[in-house]
């Protein structure tokens, strides 16, 4: 816990915050509580991993905070903007301008070149591309020679790097990554994770990553553990072993209780 205060002090403000967030699916007998009064904040310039077993609500939390899913009650903010109550159009704008996404499946448009995929959010917004920043991002992800390639001509790791570059290129307030290494071999996965960490350390980006892989989580500054729709623990400066250790403890607790 002492380490967490250090980081909070380091970043100062929260890039995204959830307060008393509830998400309920269905009604009556089929009622499922996906998020149960979750309050969490993601500091600016911080790399946070959300972990938990399947069905713990980690993806739902991310979707709600990224404006992809509606919340049942509570509040979710990106910067100063309250997401709850926004109309589809405003949410879309917000996602476009403030949020970057990296999905598990690479989600690139096969008809566009790598560069066109990277600049897609800016093209949609009709905003100007910051060429210096774009060059830096492209260099960081190591795609310089492949910008005119189409996704089909790139390897899985390269495609995911294009997706990361796309998320970074518009300088969003926060990047949400949903199992970004789920479809990659361990080496490509490690590349992507290093890259995400570097973007936080060197470019001052804020990244929130959902994962179930302790190794992936170990790249983060902080790990938030979810189970049954609640935040059950958090860990700062994680290592793969410390994360695994925590998870085993929940497992054991779950079995004894």
């Amino acid at each position: 816990m002492s380490t967490s205060t250090a980081y909070a002090a380091h970043t100062g403000v929260a890039a995204a915050r959830a307060t008393g967030l509830n998400k309920v699916y269905g009604e009556g007998e089929t009622r499922v509580v996906a998020l149960d009064d979750v309050s969490v904040s993601f500091g600016q310039g911080e790399f946070t991993a959300i972990m938990g077993p399947s069905g713990s609500g980690k993806s739902t939390l991310m979707h709600c905070m990224a404006g992809l899913d509606e919340v049942s009650s509570g509040s979710a903010t990106i910067g100063d903007t309250e997401l709850v109550g926004l109309k589809d159009k405003q949410l879309t704008r917000l996602r476009r301008d403030k949020i970057g996404f990296v999905f598990q499946a690479f989600n690139l448009l096969p008809t566009l070149t790598a560069l066109e995929n990277i600049t897609l959010p800016m093209d949609i917004a009709g905003s100007k591309v910051d060429q210096a920043w774009l060059d830096r991002v492209v260099e960081t992800v190591g795609l310089s020679g492949r910008l005119s390639h189409r996704p089909a001509q790139l390897s899985g790791g390269q495609q995911q790097r294009v997706a990361c570059a796309r998320a970074l290129a518009s300088k969003p307030a926060i990047i949400f990554a949903d199992e970004p290494t789920g479809n990659l071999d361990s080496r490509s996965g490690a590349e992507i994770l290093s890259f995400l960490r570097n973007s936080v350390r060197e470019l001052g980006q804020t990244v929130v990553m959902v994962t179930h892989d302790p190794v992936a989580a170990s790249y983060a500054d902080r790990v938030v553990f979810l189970a049954d729709g609640r935040i059950v623990d958090e860990l700062h400066h994680p290592t793969a072993d410390s994360v695994l250790d925590r998870m085993r403890r929940f497992d054991a607790k779950g079995r004894t209780s």
């Binding site: 990224a66 992809l68 589809d88 159009k89 879309t92 704008r93 996602r95 476009r96 301008d97 970057g100 996404f101 999905f103 499946a105 989600n107 448009l109 096969p110 897609l120 959010p121 949609i124 917004a125 796309r166």
Partner: peptide
């Protein structure tokens, strides 16, 4: 479907 979902996620409005 997935492309369209992605486009919506990264900020293309319904109108778009």
């Amino acid at each position: 479907k997935r492309e369209i979902g992605m486009l919506r996620a990264i900020g293309l409005e319904r109108r778009g």
